[in-house]
């Protein structure tokens, strides 16, 4: 075995340097070949600007979009986790019908492109579902408390039903993958654990609750964290059904300012910050859980 490298040497430096030169060349070429002038100052007002009337700093489209993406992420993680756990347990249920339902759900979602799935869901289902469920009515409610709550939790009330369909769509989509993670985690627990639990006289429910699930959680956590990160990134897809999240806003601002490169680089950076923050958070949780186990 070779000794683990702990320090960078001059070859590594050379590689980094050549990558840097490559990037600079690309940037230069964008300027000369595409006749593109970089101008970052033009897009700043789309993040934050001083309101002329009040004289206060006000957040603009990009920050609104970021907030919307974060809402989608948080609610999406909760909703898809619930769907995933319920469906995952159905997937290994002894009841044939429940197994069939869960299996169909997983296979339908897994074998359709997310974009197609979202279009089908949005145009066929949610345009009919939302009015029936009274979502539209709720959004048009006169009560200031309702309006205020919707604005805080879900953004502009005018787009409330859109937001709900986007969220539901995203949750159903990611839930299918979480279903499989939950199923695999539970099934990875050796059969002997089930047998030992049953042999001491525990009911199936008690074996599941006290023996299988606590062990499965440790195995499910890492792939689950991974899926949550994927969910955050996949949330950009719902921009196509007019959910005004980060990607949607980036398209708008890009078109209206024609600062295409700047806006997309910044958008990528914003996604990176959110996702990487989540990665660090999940790693920290994992380390803490590992310590608590001993």
């Amino acid at each position: 075995m070779q000794r683990k490298k702990t320090k960078l040497n001059w070859i590594d430096a050379l590689v980094v340097l050549s990558i840097a030169i490559f990037v600079i060349v690309i940037v230069r070429r964008v300027e000369s070949v595409l006749n593109y002038t970089w101008d970052w100052s033009k897009i700043v007002p789309f993040f934050i600007y001083v309101d002329r009337e009040t004289g206060e700093w006000t957040k603009n489209l990009m920050i609104e979009g970021l907030l919307m993406t974060m809402r989608l992420a948080v609610y999406g993680i909760v909703a898809s986790a619930i769907i995933g756990v319920v469906m995952g347990l159905c997937r290994i249920s002894s009841n044939l019908f429940l197994r069939m339902v869960a299996r169909s759900y997983v296979e339908l979602v897994r074998n359709t492109p997310p974009l197609v799935f979202i279009f089908i869901f949005y145009f066929f289902l949610s345009t009919q579902l939302m009015p029936v469920l009274g979502i539209e009515e709720l959004a048009r409610s006169d009560s200031p408390t309702v309006q205020w709550l919707i604005r805080i939790l879900c953004g502009d009330p005018v787009l409330f039903s859109n937001f709900i369909s986007g969220l539901v769509c995203l949750s159903i989509f990611e839930g299918a993958y979480i279903t499989e993670i939950v199923r695999a985690g539970v099934q990875s627990i050796p059969r002997g654990q089930w047998e030992a639990g049953k042999a001491v006289g525990l009911s199936g429910f008690d074996v599941m609750r006290s023996v299988i699930l606590p062990q499965a959680v440790n195995r499910i956590a890492p792939p689950l964290a991974n899926q949550f990160i994927t969910l955050i990134k996949d949330s950009s897809i719902v921009s196509l059904i007019s959910i005004q999240e980060l990607t949607f806003m980036a398209v708008e601002v890009g078109v209206s300012t024609s600062r295409i490169f700047e806006i997309w680089i910044l958008t990528a950076a914003m996604y990176f910050v959110i996702c990487y923050a989540c990665v660090l958070f999940f790693n920290w949780l994992e380390r803490r859980a590992a310590r608590a186990r001993r």
């Binding site: 050796p190 030992a196 001491v200 006289g201 525990l202 009911s203 062990q215 440790n218």
Partner: peptide
Amino acid sequence: FQQFNLFPHLTVLENLVLAPMRA
């Protein structure tokens, strides 16, 4: 069992009290 099949996430004492408490 041949393979013991103790519950690895529980201490010895917790292994022993689980079934009497639940069942």
